[in-house]
Design a protein around this nucleic acid. Structure first.
Length: 463
RNA sequence: GUGGGUGUAGCUCAACUGGUUAGAGCAUCGGACUGUGGCUCCGAGGGUUGGGGGUUCAAGUCCCCUCACUCACCCCA
């Protein structure tokens, strides 16, 4: 061995029956998101590298060391998407007409201020993303996220809906032991003063901070020092100023409204003043859902507002909020407690000999078609290896078939087909008239078989 | 990128301090039962012990290197 190809590190083959869990989860996500009025988008797997390095932020680990970047044959720098928020906003700016804007110069920066309200979209997505990291439990190089993005409104009700949708989905997935953390990290107006306060606080201890914090976080993004887990930095975190004390009036109101509505709806959450989230684009609301049932990678969902991302990507200022959840982590939590999505009956077609196979083939196809037309949940399986009767029945049994159709030389000679109820260990002969119309025989047999196996069995019908 | 743990049949695992032909269960296939399934019994196939090198009379076992998996750090979904 050893010469065979294997899936690349950090990538996984999803095989049955595991894929059933994924389908179950995907259906739950789609169903809930649609019920909240969200619509699905699908953006490309790869984008211009620039979209991510600017959108997510140069200083973040994602862009600094985790991106799958390559140069295509046209010399462009391309990156496999490490997350889907930046692509969603890119798609929004690319496809939706914006109201007129005026260019304003604020603090040396030219900004496009919209004169009207931008279009509102409520999107959800589901798909793979890629990050070059060492894999571990709940972390892979190709992983899957689902998430939502609402672009075009700054109403805290939207923040609320986004959080509620996440919780609804987790609830239908029957996930236990979840904890919601919430914080507000301010906006472009109030964050500068908070940043300054943080820098002022950490300045005296600068030499004692860990290397990462000392060399780049302090200058580039002091908020992330709060997120640092280093022993070195820990002692200085308790006393650090918290964002709540520096929020401008608008951010304060926004945050208060959100909290009040969450409380009114009896959503249990905890405020975490040190929750800052790793990506640069967040503003105001940030939240995270963690599970105590997972290992070190216990964050199953992270999100928040990103009112500045539109501008960061060169467009006008458009308010937006969303979240992304890691589907592999949800699968880890799903275990086996997922509901079987409606039982499908199985009929196994046993054939002995070439003539029998020839006769059976159109019958099998017709049964599948008829069952579909009549909305009967039924699948038909058969033998492809010329195995003997005993083995075929054994196989039927192993697959959990309820009925077997048996056809061999003997039956053909007598113009009949055996329909065997495997559980009851009983069988009956279905005689057919040898006419010059084979199609008629197939249709007649199909009708009789479907009637017989469906007799008195409601579960075969889906609604 | 850094650290720990683990690599033996398709799967789950054995093999006392190095000791001679590496075993078992499950699965697969065949037979008992040439055309009627869930049991039972019998039998068979399958392995360069992840790969390479070294120590030794002798290596699955000890040492080095390498690869893979896994958990953790950093960070994130």
């Amino acid at each position: 061995m050893g010469e065979l190809f294997k899936a690349l590190r950090g990538t996984n083959d999803l095989l049955p029956p595991e894929t059933q869990k994924w389908v179950f989860m995907e259906e739950a996500i789609r169903q809930k998101a649609e019920s909240f009025g969200f619509q699905e988008i699908r953006t490309p797997i790869f984008e211009h590298t620039e979209l991510f390095s600017r959108g997510i932020g140069e200083g973040t680990d994602i862009t600094a060391k985790e991106m799958y970047t390559f140069t295509d044959k046209g010399g462009r720098s391309i990156t496999l998407r490490p997350e889907l928020t930046a692509p969603a906003v890119r798609a929004y700016l690319e496809h939706f007409p914006m109201p007129a804007a005026r260019i304003e110069e604020i603090e040396g920066k030219k900004r496009k201020i919209l004169l009207g309200t931008p279009p509102l979209v409520k999107w959800y997505y589901l798909g793979p993303a890629f990050r070059y990291e060492r894999p571990q439990s709940g972390r892979y190089r190709q992983f899957h996220q689902f998430g939502v993005e609402v672009i075009g409104s700054q109403n805290p009700d939207i923040d609320l809906e986004v959080i509620l949708l996440a919780l609804e989905i987790f609830k239908t997935l029957n996930l236990q032991n979840l904890e919601i953390k919430l914080n507000s990290i301010g906006c472009s107006k109030c964050r500068p003063s908070y940043r300054e306060a943080l820098k002022k606080h950490f300045y005296p201890y600068l030499e004692q901070l860990c290397e990462d914090c000392r060399t780049h976080r302090y200058e580039k993004n002091p908020l992330r020092i709060l997120d640092c887990k280093s022993q070195k930095c820990a002692p200085f975190l308790h006393e650090a100023p918290i964002p709540a004390d520096y929020l401008c009036e608008e951010c304060q109101n926004h945050f208060k409204k959100l909290q009040k509505k969450l409380t009114n709806l009896q959503v249990v959450y905890s405020l975490d003043p040190r929750l800052v989230r790793g990506l640069d684009y967040y503003t105001k609301t940030v939240f995270e859902v963690i599970s105590s049932s997972l290992g070190a990678q216990n964050s199953i969902c992270g999100g928040g507002r990103y009112d500045d991302l539109g501008e960061i990507l060169g467009g006008p200022s458009v308010p937006a909020v969303g979240f992304a959840a890691g589907m592999e982590r949800l699968i880890l939590l799903l275990k086996d407690n997922f509901a079987d999505s409606g039982k499908t009956s199985l009929v196994y077609a046993v054939t002995l000999g070439e003539k029998a196979e020839e006769f059976m083939l159109p019958l099998v196809f017709n049964l599948r078609k008829e069952a579909g037309d009549r909305k009967i949940k039924l699948k038909i399986e058969r033998d492809y290896q010329n195995r003997n009767l005993g083995t075929q029945l054994k196989e039927a049994n192993r697959l959990g078939a309820e009925f077997a159709l048996i056809l061999g030389e003997n039956e053909l000679a007598e113009n009949k087909l055996i329909l065997r109820n495997l559980a009851a260990r009983q069988q009956e002969d279905l005689f057919f008239k040898q006419s010059e119309n084979p199609k008629g025989i197939v249709e007649d047999l199909s009708n009789r078989i479907l009637e017989k196996i469906n007799y008195g069995k409601q579960p075969l019908y889906s609604h």
